[in-house]
Design a binder for these strands. Structure first.
Lengths: 203, 203
DNA sequence: AGCGGCGTATACCGGTTGGTATAGTCACCG
DNA sequence: CGGTGACTATACCAACCGGTATACGCCGCT
């Protein structure tokens, strides 16, 4: 038995190293172009160890995506938590994105990239990617509903698109203002949906 | 000499077949996972022929991206041309996207995917991708400026992000309404920038 | 004292990668 | 008639791929 996918046991030191290296190499060079041999070498570990801990490359890829997703989620939660009103929380998701892009995300969304690289529709890594997208949408829909939006689903979807677009603009085009632009647009969209800046007592 | 990158001579029948097959396989299965052997077999052609016509895999990838970019541009031009006002033309770009997604783009933006797969920063395919993104932004900026937007650059950038986000939503999440949602959001954004539906005589 | 989990080292497997070499066929064209 | 461009067929190359096998060392736990 080679460590089932869904358990979260503490990870051995060598496994940690492998996962860290995978997090860097898979992201920066692409999943398909990074071989297990290189991974092992870079982590100071033998291939045997990798296969003992993770089972297969496919499973390691899933672990990599899960770990990255978790880090992004932490970043998101941290920024959303400090904001007060639902409206401010929505805008905080763009601040989280800004922080995320500035350092951890120079090569675009890892989930979208993985989706592109893993052409097999049955690859378990795919549902990690769609899970992340759905979670953001659910969060946004929840927030704008709290803020009193008329059609929370549609607005949340549009806001999520701004997120996605900002990532592409920032990584592919190097537009460092992208998240700012997206945030401004989000403010505009919310305003048009009846979510105003201040003075909520405007019945 | 193996056919320089920028010339556009008619393409031999075999080369056409290769480029068509590459257009399908590279997009649906990913660039790195499709080998020249498979490509040759599928096109009913020898590897020798491919290398005689295209020089290298890298060059073939560039040709593939160029051809796809051109097809999208045609789709875009077609939809924009029939629209009247600048505002309608902006919205027409989303109609173009809808038509494009419905049939030619089930696996997301080929340019973004290629950007993810080609990790080498010097790969010539990359500038094809950024070129496409810049061209859309230039078009949008031009249109919203004609429509009298206050800050054409920022608005165009936000609209482009909606494009990008719609593609991801549609391909990864299977949201068939994505382009519609993006179009509606675009209308809202333009409205907030002083580009109204009708009655332009509103000095 | 002993055992099992963790790790190293090395070698190997069949298959595939991008790319090249050699030899030959066919059709068109001056 | 001869030449040339387009193409096929086959074989080959070194390098790398994911994955497995064998054998051994270390350390903490009971």
């Amino acid at each position: 038995m080679t460590a089932s996918a869904t358990e979260a046991r503490p990870l051995t030191p060598a496994a940690r190293r492998v996962l860290d290296v995978a997090g860097q190499l898979f992201y920066t060079r692409g999943i398909n172009t990074v071989g297990m041999e290189l991974l092992a070498e870079e982590a100071g570990v033998t291939k045997k160890t990798i296969y003992d801990r993770f089972g297969s490359k496919q499973d390691l890829v899933v672990a990599y995506l899960r770990a990255r997703d978790e880090r992004w989620q932490d970043c998101l939660d941290r920024h959303v938590a400090v904001a007060g009103t639902p409206r401010a929380r929505v805008l905080a998701t763009f601040d989280a994105l800004y922080a995320w892009m500035d350092g951890e995300n120079p090569r675009g969304c890892a989930m979208v990239n993985a989706y592109a690289e893993l052409s097999d529709p049955d690859h378990p890594g795919r549902e990690v990617a769609v899970g992340q997208k759905l979670r953001l949408r659910a969060l946004l829909a929840d927030l704008v509903e709290q803020a009193g939006a008329a059609a929370p689903g549609r607005l949340a979807e549009a806001l999520a698109m701004l997120h996605e677009g900002a990532v592409v603009a920032c990584s592919v085009l190097g537009d460092t203002d992208a998240t700012r632009t997206a945030r401004d647009a989000a403010e505009t969209l919310m305003g048009a949906h009846g979510i105003a800046a201040e003075a909520p007592s405007q019945v």
